[in-house]
Amino acid sequence: MHTQLDVNGRAYALDHDPRTTLLDALRDHIGLYGTKKGCDHGQCGACTVLVNGRRINSCLTLAAMHDGDEITTVEGLGEPGALAPLQQAFVDCDGYQCGYCTPGQIMSATGMLEEAKAGDPSHVSASLSGDVALDDSEIAERMSGNLCRCSAYPFIRQAIHSVEGKE
């Protein structure tokens, strides 16, 4: 079957098996390997991408469900020499050890900062209204879908803190 995807501002016309997940379409059809396959069951978050600006697990959705959608992967944020602020912050703060979860962490954090900017409360927010103050517990809750088996969480939070409000 045929699906049209807009990935990082470029149009791709895919001819694929209906079973192809968005993750496999990105990696195996388009050749963008930044998005990682961790658990392939929506539990680890390594495959997080933005779809029309919202973060989702690309392993838990079929490419065919995204005909015409705008997808942003880690390759669409920046590139060597011109990193996005979050990418640079992860480098500066050592926000990883093995690095496998990092693209997912960065995509999820990108989506998360937009949600916080829009005033979306989280389960740990003291108040449902007003501005969101991203302290450690807020970041931990809002990033709870992204696991890091190396447990670099303190440095991941530090990296996110360092770009918050700077954009």
Binding site: G42, I56, L60, G111, M112, S144
Partner: peptide
């Protein structure tokens, strides 16, 4: 409180 943020977006 359902799942995690990525799951809640789908």
């Amino acid at each position: 409180r359902i799942g995690d943020p990525a799951v809640r977006n789908r």
